[in-house]
Each structure stands twice: as structure tokens, then as C-alpha cells.
Amino acid sequence: MNRIQQAFQKKGKGLLNIYFTAGYPRLHDTVPLIQAVAAAGADLIEIGMPFSDPLADGPVIQASSTVALRNGMNLRVLFDQLQGIRELVPDTPILLMGYLNPVMQFGVENFCRKAAAAGVDGVILPDLPLDDYVQEYQEIFRRHSLRPVFLVTPQTAPARIRRIDELTDSFLYLVSGPGTTGGQNTQAEGVQEAYFQRIEDMQLRNPRLIGFGISDKASFRQACRYAEGAIIGSALIRALEDTEDAPAAAQQFVRSVLA
């Protein structure tokens, strides 16, 4: 059983996955932030690999990526920072989230080797198509025991959801509704409920985390009614915007969600 599966087995319900952008607000905040959100009770940690053109992200994560890149963040720096992270945070699953082009330029094999060596458990690349993953990446991911995480949206067809479910041993990332990260959820509640229920009824192998538009205790609790847990990113980053002490602000934010 991998670290992600263990986390789900241990807690069962109400898991909180916290996203933040590596190298934001300052270049060397990455590791202190990992420690802070883990200590505050986050069950999974998703580290954003900043990209110049993050298509699936809204303004908050875009802006944090721009700052991180300006700070000098790149994959070499990130893997340097992550060295020894498992001595500090032994059990909390760590995932890397980003876009395909920087990973391609770094070299997929090299990327997977470095990620695995650092103790990373999973990778989320929203612009990596399923077919390309299966044909070109799956073997490399497996060799390095990295789990891919794929997104599912209200428009994803059932057969495709089954296929996604077969391709990983981690979790399914349920996008709450139409939109990029950090948006307001404008759907009628019944519509969203029906979508989550439809997925629940499929009795999938993998647990589910709901993301996009989850921002505080209330929306986190609401999401946890329909899935094993939820993902918060933009709201945390907003909490780091005007602070001198990012780890303390992150800790306070995570505690406010779990309180």
C-alpha cells in the first residue's frame, strides 16, 4: 500500500489536501510551508510547480506562479529543496502539480527519478492526455512508484471515469464544476449534488477528493459530504499574500478549515 492509500485508509473521511505554489511567497518558503501545513493537520500536500501559462488555473494561482518564477523557482531548485523532506514529514503524501512542458524539458525519466528520490508520491499534470500517459509515461511512472492523479469533471463520460479509475492507485480529483481554480461556485446545488452522487454510485476503486472553489471550513465540510475529502489551493495562497511569516499564516489557515 502506498503512502496516499495509507492516508485514506487511516482517516477514511474528511481528508484535507492543501495546495500551494513552490517558491511562493519567497523562494525558500517551500519546505517550511510543507512542515507547517502537515503540522496543522493537512492530510495530503500538493506542491505546485510554477508555469508561465497555467491554463487550468485562475488569477490567484497564476499570480503566485509568476512571483515564484521571478523568485527563481524551477524544477532543479525544487528537487534540491525537497531533499530530506521525508525526515521532516515522514507520512503525509506529497504530490507535485504542474504542466507538462516544464516536465518534458526537464526530461520525464529524470523528473520521475528525482521526484521518487525526494519521497514524492503522486503527480498531477492536467494537460497530459490519458492516451499519451498510457503510451509514453505509464511505464516510467510505474518504475519510479509514482501515482498519476487525473481530473474528472461533470462532463466526463462514465466509461472514461472507469478508465481513469483503472489507471491509478491514489485518488480521483473531482473538479466541482465548470471553471478554473479559485473560482466561485455558481452552480445550483442540486446539479452538483447529482454529479457527485453519480460518481459515488459508480463504486470506484479509488477514493475521491473534490477541488476547485473550496475555500473555507463551510465549503470544505460541504464537499466532504460527497467525497472522502477536498482540496484547497487558491484560498490558502490568498492567506499568504500579505504576510511576513508564511508558515504561520498557512498553519492558521489550515486550522481554521479543520476547526
Binding site: L55, A56, L100, P126, D127, L128, P129, D131, D132, F150, L151, V152, T153, Q155, T156, A157, R160, V175, P178
Partner: peptide
Amino acid sequence: ERGYYGQFGGAFIPEMLYPN
């Protein structure tokens, strides 16, 4: 069929765009 001209092309899109 998958939109490649030699090594170039394809459809590298997030799942949200896939059905469209």
C-alpha cells in the same frame, strides 16, 4: 487521426476541455 504532423500536434488539454 490523433492530430499529428510528424512529431508535432496532438491535443494536450485539461480534462475540462476534453468533451468539447
